[in-house]
Design a protein around this nucleic acid. Structure first.
Length: 572
RNA sequence: GCCUCCGUAGCUCAGGGGAUAGAGCAGCGGCCUUCUAAUCCGCUGGUCGUAGGUUCGAAUCCUACCGGGGGCACCA
């Protein structure tokens, strides 16, 4: 019996109690029943039992009676008595009792709880996946760093978090597109081009040039790509700038993609802003011009002071925004709007944006665009704002020139430690990267603690094989009665709901926290319960059954780490 | 001024209205001829920023205040 199955039973039992009271009331047999009872609906999520902190409170506890007592018109303990009567009838339930103000504490029999070990092993990588978000087509945009320089510390959190959110959403059955919006149009690109051209030609850097050594390296690579750049520049400076800028852009973008791959972060779509400015064949309007037209038809666009505006204040923004400046050039916001419409046209329901706290002013205008596009501003757009990352107390920014590149972090700390650490905290919690801790192999750095649980389960497998212990020879879950086995099984049973919850809340850190608890339960179990017999002790069904449990725990650790983009090595 | 996030053990932080608020680290003390101990066990440690409210019940939801981070462009 899993908690999910228990929830189904609890919801059914309570529904039947309600129906019974209603029919009793209509036949006049019970005056106490109130008329309100006719409208009460009990869902599975209402009935989801919790794992009590205190072992004396059973394997699973439900607050269902307290939640519904008032609406039904009974006192909680009275209602709990009726529910308990139903729960006691269920197969696999050893004991059900009422405690405190109306908690229902349920204890499963060992065989029913132990069944989980086999279920996990048989489902393998599929264990924990669900269809709670099935049918949802979600667009997830994150990182979207300008292709004018390498990814740095400021981008790493969103890269790790976004990729993990995507994995968690997919595990819950959603269809997700990970998208990186490339700001490859506009003044920053031109500045980038001038900086690299100067470096390539060995000239002094322009006054407003990008700082950083990488510009010089890009200059060298541009020279490799365009060996006669100097000649071209001598003849036609503009043409040289154009070629150098384009070559540098392609080079930089390709390096960004490589870095992300090394970080185990995958994008399905790299969306170029330029394509929004490009006119179609036969003089068709550019997507951005078409977007402005569409919003104008909806009545959200007006002109004032030579500029074209969109009335975002109609949708809660604190001021109206400019689409086209007085000089006729589209703002970035106009491109953002066109991109939004493109996502909508591609059939995405919810569009999620992952932004740093320094962008929180974007919430209002992005939400307004969704509203102007005719979308539901509550359900079709989500802007997740996360706090920035600190390194040794000093916040770093690209503009400040004090760059720590993602590649440096990867080389220094490794992808696993970095990704785990970044995924371990809620996005809205400030986070500090501490190199000392991330390199340490102690419990200061929990990724090793979790990975070790997996490696340890693999070590047990190797030893079991050598000792001739095989899963297929026996599985008797009623033997898994040790306290640490009950705990470990309970933890394994919680995994699917942890994944589903992390998906619904877009909070992958719940997976990390769960894994740390699971690893602790596994290590504790390992310490108390041997899979390989000691000394002359013969191999028994208990050992064989424990091998199932060992493999189940290893599997869930692996599944969870995978959702965080962290590997599960077989040896450390 | 307005918007937004945060305030929980000495430190770093978990904690989707539930029972006695948890973990790691730090501190003190145990277990290694081991299914290799990056593990495990015990002890110490709390006005959940303050004050109200909502209800059977609040660290959790609401309001106000105090303290801290970030943001409020015809920038990109």
């Amino acid at each position: 019996m899993t908690p999910q199955e228990l929830a189904v039973h609890l919801a059914r039992i309570l529904t039947e109690i309600i129906a019974e009271r209603r029919s009793a009331a209509t036949t006049g047999e019970n005056d106490a029943a109130t008329g309100d009872a006719t409208e009460i609906l009990v869902t599975e999520s209402d009935a989801a039992p919790e794992r009590p902190k205190n072992r004396e409170h059973g394997d699973w506890a439900s607050n269902l009676a307290m939640k519904f007592a008032k609406r039904i018109g009974m006192n909680p303990r009275e209602l709990a008595t009726l529910i308990v009567a139903g729960v006691e009838q269920l197969d696999g339930v050893a004991k059900a009792e009422i405690a405190g103000p109306g908690f229902i504490n349920i204890t499963l029999d060992a065989a029913s709880a132990g069944e989980t070990a086999r279920r996990v092993v048989e489902q393998g990588e599929a264990y924990g996946r669900s269809d709670v978000l099935a049918g949802e087509k979600i667009n997830l945009e994150f990182v979207s760093a300008n292709p004018t320089g390498p990814l740095h510390l400021g981008h790493t959190r969103w890269a790790a978090l976004g990729d993990s959110i995507s994995r968690v959403l997919r595990a819950a059955g959603a269809e997700v597109s990970n998208e990186y919006y490339i700001n490859d149009a506009g003044a920053q690109m031109n500045k980038f081009g001038r900086s690299v051209l100067a470096a390539a030609l060995g000239e002094e850097a322009p006054e407003d040039a990008y700082p950083g050594e990488y510009i010089g390296e890009l200059g060298r690579k541009v020279n490799e790509r365009i060996p006669n750049l100097a000649d071209i520049a001598a003849n036609d400076r503009e043409q040289a700038l154009e070629l150098a800028q384009e070559a540098a852009y392609q080079q930089q973008l390709s390096e960004i993609k490589d870095s992300l791959e090394r970080f185990n972060v995958h994008f399905d779509v790299y969306f170029s802003e330029r394509t929004l400015h490009t006119e179609g064949e036969n003089g068709a309007k550019s997507p951005i011009a078409a977007a402005v037209d569409r919003l104008r038809e909806q009545g959200h666009v007006f002109e004032e002071d030579d500029a074209i505006w969109v009335r975002t204040t109609d949708f809660g923004d604190d001021k109206d925004r400019v689409f086209t400046r007085g000089n006729g050039i589209y703002t970035y916001f106009a491109a953002d709007a066109a991109y939004y419409l493109d996502k909508k046209d591609r059939g995405f329901g919810e569009k999620i944006y992952l932004l740093g706290a320094d962008h929180h002013g974007y919430i209002g205008r992005l939400t307004a665009i969704a509203g102007a596009a005719g979308d539901n501003t509550e359900t079709d757009i989500t802007v997740l704002i996360g706090q920035l990352v600190n390194l040794n107390g000093a916040r770093l920014s690209k503009r400040a020139g004090n760059i720590i590149e993602l590649d440096d972090l990867l080389e220094w700390l490794g992808s696993d430690a970095l990704r785990y650490w970044l995924a371990r905290y809620p996005a809205d919690s400030p986070l500090a990267l501490d190199g000392e801790k991330l390199r340490s192999r102690t419990n200061d750095n929990p990724v090793f603690y979790v990975q070790y649980a997996h490696a340890r389960s693999c070590a047990v497998d190797r030893n079991a094989e050598a000792a001739g212990i095989r899963r297929k020879d026996a599985f008797d879950p009623s033997l898994l009665t040790h306290e640490t086995e009950t705990e470990l099984l309970g933890k394994l049973q919680q995994y699917p709901s942890v994944v589903a919850g992390a998906a619904e809340l877009r909070e992958p850190h719940r997976i990390a926290r769960y894994l740390e608890e699971l690893a602790a339960d596994f290590h504790r179990w390992y310490d108390h319960c041997r899979v390989i017999p000691q000394g002359e002790e013969p191999v028994s069904d208990l050992h064989r059954t424990r091998l199932w449990l060992n493999d189940a725990a290893g599997q869930v650790v692996k599944n969870g780490l995978d959702l965080l983009g962290v590997t599960a090595p077989e040896r450390l």
